[in-house]
Amino acid sequence: MITTTHWVLLGALVAGAVWTVLTARLLRSAVGLAITSAILAILMFQLASPLAAVFELSVCAGLISAIFVSTISMTHRVTAEDLAIRLKERLHWFWLLPLILLAAGAALISVHFVLDIRPPAPPAENDVRIVLWKIRHLDLLGQIAILLAGAFGVVALFKEWKDE
């Protein structure tokens, strides 16, 4: 059931995450996140969840990356010296991550995993549009509330700073 495509995509996902964490330049890290997110979207397609995949691709890989990149460009000016120092600091700490991941991966693979549960009854309704729009009204209401809160957040946090 698990195909080569799955293996490749999962490998790419982990590699993307590791690169996001390890790369010294913040901008590259944000790009790494976008790539990880895009791979995740493809995986979601593979897992029969196309609508969520579209959301992941447009909102996370697109919008959130745009937010990160513009923030980084607003806050960050790196010189070559900075970068050299930072690279050293990162080597100091970050060589550990691949080791940890290897150890964790090996440990998890060696576990003989049994899914000892009875599968739940099949759902009464499995179309995401109907689940989202007809059944889970409360979540939609919550989304509206949180979007409104976000709008006030933008007003309160991003408006002009007078004292500068």
Partner: peptide, 19 residues
Amino acid sequence: SLYVFLEVSAVASFILIAM
């Protein structure tokens, strides 16, 4: 939904604190 509504009040309170 519990998670969703916890986030609603949490996001509102982040903004209120940082305001």
